[in-house]
Design a protein around this nucleic acid. Structure first.
Lengths: 367, 367
DNA sequence: TTGAAAGCGCTAACAT
DNA sequence: ATGTTAGCGCTTTCAA
């Protein structure tokens, strides 16, 4: 280390300056001509600290000096080394995106939103897919954080619902923001939407179309956020004074195929429903496919509604009524909140709610 | 904390150690108790170099020593700092994934494949979406590389077809591997599949079903990889001795909607085709939707085939015949090749081809 | 407003 | 087989 330099006292800076430049230029294979902050300083005839100040937009630099440094930076095509910066500043300027078993569409929208905010703030985004049920999820994340690979993480469903994981991250003080957890916690920041309310609204909309026998296909039991949707449905049914018919609540598993199975069961009931509301679009599409096979016309004999507004919703025929979640905005907001936390900003909201939107299309038009 | 101990042990380092530690501990918020390589070395009573050796699985460490170090590592929960490592070793152990305007499914599969190989090799994956047509694409990438944010990049279509981008990266010696470019270059490593051959095969399969009026919907003109598919179709038509009917080649733009438009045009022809082969599944699904609207039964009156085997292909009714591209394996292979290059491995193949596979489903059964 | 010095925590080259 | 030393390229602290 440098102790010796200090020890041997004065020839220090000679040693220090003379060699590195030469050695680096000769021996190193990586990015051979890559200019360092020192090259810029030399060219601009200032100290490296001043260059650093300019690059980081710090105050207290004479505008003439600043201009000179800028010129040097451009002349050399200088770009500060990320690792060196991270090491010295003790931050990676990188966020981890944790996800597990998501639909491609969902994670794609999450990534878009997250990347947008990251770019605005000069952060990078690191992907970290997790294995649901794997006991090591949290220790792995904590290790990555300790390694300084990321400064904080964004948790997406269903990870945001795994209490053990969140607990462990809280305990290890990994900064984080959770997206769409099923239940709000007091110890972390969360970005949510109003699934419950949206499902109440959709159920009411089906009722308004004249439906009195409305069935629901619930989502995967492990994805608890999707559970809110069932509650919304049940609440609306009760409010509307419709009978609480357990036959009209089928268990799905979020997949297209599980929608087919549940749809077939519902349509085979002695007294079949006239409307089926599925907890996601994939299952709703499965219902539609089965209805076609059964020769049940949509929306003539059966109305169908989904949840998510995936592209498929406009590609099936007829187009599917659904609920559009603000996934991308939620992710963008989550990243903004996380970065605000990392910067120790004041007045960070405890939680943020972004509204979902009812999208009524052909599968639930008047019949 | 740790450093105070050191101070009393070695007076030499007093000056050096005493101050920063205290200052850092007070001011810094990040990972306060994080153990360093020095802590491990002290606990295991070895030098830091030995700890480093153990961590990097280098040879020439006595197994007893190795065990002692391991114990210390575990006792302290030590995890090496990524930035420090990168800085010292001059490599980030991170790869950049460059993409632009991909379908969510496509990029999702790419990511899965890439992440799989990255994890095996201890690399991270950084997302870098690009703006098609943006002139600054390459300079941005080059800057990130110079900053040491990633050691190399994976290029996905349509970026892998943009000669200016590839040229600039080559000129800046950014290590890279391209996935599925339309045309092979000699100066970079590429992973491709056999779109051409697959399209010949699909066209022949339709012919074998008895079709003599086979139409094709071409992909987006900007996505040149998709252009190979048209060539395959044309070649097969010629080989089969079918007339070269320009009416039977429609221009699509890869979207579901463009498939609807092209399909409507084809089905409105005075002498309509009995089979439509679309250059991707989204367009094929668009054709199917239009056929339903037109009252044209599938596969009774019309056979349909697509390309890609997206989830939608099994969710439409009837299920869509298509070509399954090995997207995930291609991405996994691309990452392996890139890492091999970064490690200066010998005998890296110039290019790798992974075969596509015909998937014949209900839309092209015998009629 | 500027600069000098001291690390950040690791790897690499060279001893021993 | 193990240790010593000198950086990697930046930020931070503190002094000027």
């Amino acid at each position: 280390m440098k102790k010796i330099r200090i020890q041997s006292a004065h020839p220090v800076s000679v040693l220090k300056k003379a060699k590195p430049t030469i050695a680096v230029r000769k021996g190193m294979t990586l990015r051979p001509g890559r200019p360092t902050i020192e090259d810029v300083a030399k060219l601009a005839e200032v100290s490296i600290k001043t260059v650093s100040r300019v690059f980081n937009n710090e105050p207290n630099v004479a505008s003439a000096t600043r201009a000179r440094v800028q010129t040097a930076i451009e002349a050399l095509g200088y770009s500060p080394n990320h690792s060196a910066r991270s090491l010295a500043a003790r931050q990676s300027l990188t966020l981890g995106l944790l996800y597990d078993n998501p639909s491609p569409n969902y994670i794609h929208q999450i990534q878009r939103g997250a990347l947008r905010s990251c770019q605005e703030a000069g952060y990078d985004l690191l992907l970290h897919p997790c294995q649901f049920g794997d006991k090591a999820i949290s220790s792995e994340i904590i290790a990555l954080h300790r390694q300084g690979r990321f400064d904080g993480v964004i948790l997406t469903p269903p990870l945001s619902d795994m209490a053990e994981v969140v607990d462990a991250l809280v305990a290890a003080s990994v900064p984080m923001v959770a997206i769409a957890p099923a239940e709000l916690r007091n110890d972390i920041v969360q970005v949510v939407t109003d699934d419950f309310r949206a499902c109440v609204a959709m159920t009411r909309a089906l009722y308004a179309l004249g439906h009195r026998r409305i069935a629901f296909i619930a989502g995967h039991p492990d994805h608890r956020a999707v559970g809110q949707r069932l509650s919304g449905f049940k609440t609306a049914i009760a409010e509307l004074g419709l009978p609480d018919n357990p036959d009209f609540i089928a268990q799905g598993y979020n997949s297209f195929e599980s929608g087919e199975v549940a749809g077939a069961a519902l349509l085979s009931l002695p007294i079949a429903p006239t409307a089926i509301f599925a907890a996601n679009d994939d299952m709703a599409a499965g219902v539609m496919r089965i209805a076609h096979k059964f020769g049940v016309s949509i929306p003539g004999q059966l109305s169908v509604a989904g949840f998510d507004d995936i592209p498929l919703a406009t590609q099936v025929w007829p187009a599917l009524s659904t609920v559009r979640q603000p996934i991308e905005p939620m992710a963008a907001m989550a990243v903004q909140l996380l970065i605000a936390k990392l910067r120790n900003a004041k007045d960070i909201p405890a939680d943020v709610l972004i509204r979902s939107e009812l999208v009524l299309r052909e599968t639930s038009s008047n019949n």
